[in-house]
């Protein structure tokens, strides 16, 4: 492997299938399952792309953000909908931190006077 200055390279997204060059049986299970997850179902493909976009921001995966920004547009979502999806992710992340404040309060209640 040649030395590279960054951990993240946008070209690497296209190379995702290379993960199947070893243990292709596991990769096949993953990619088949992945395709089934994103198929039209009780949720539309567009709704799933917006959920994926939100999750991509929650897990802060640049590959996923690129892939699902494109996919959401391709599925007919617009920038207002995509921005709302990102706010949902941000709200859950922020709320998740804040709600743990109850644990803090429990500890303080137990230890304090």
């Amino acid at each position: 492997m040649h030395p590279r200055p960054h951990y993240f390279h946008c070209d690497d997204l296209q190379r995702f299938p290379e993960i199947g060059e070893n243990r292709s049986d596991l990769a096949k299970k993953f990619f088949d399952w992945y395709a089934a997850v994103f198929a039209e179902g009780a949720l539309s493909v567009r709704e799933k792309s917006l959920i994926a976009l939100a999750v991509a921001h929650a897990v802060q995966c640049p590959y996923c953000i690129e892939a699902y920004s494109k996919e959401a547009l391709q599925q007919g979502a617009d920038l207002d909908q995509m921005t709302e999806a990102v706010h949902v992710a941000a709200a859950i992340r922020g709320g998740s931190s804040l709600v743990h404040g109850v644990q803090m309060r429990n500890h303080v209640e137990r230890l304090g006077m």
């Binding site: 539309s44 567009r46 547009l73 007919g76």
Partner: peptide, 19 residues
């Protein structure tokens, strides 16, 4: 009639029509 506002293909016609 909707054309994409950018460099991508249109979404699924039936699904978008419902929305």
């Amino acid at each position: 009639v909707t054309n994409p506002v950018g460099a991508f293909l249109p979404g699924n016609q039936a699904s978008l029509q419902a929305e």
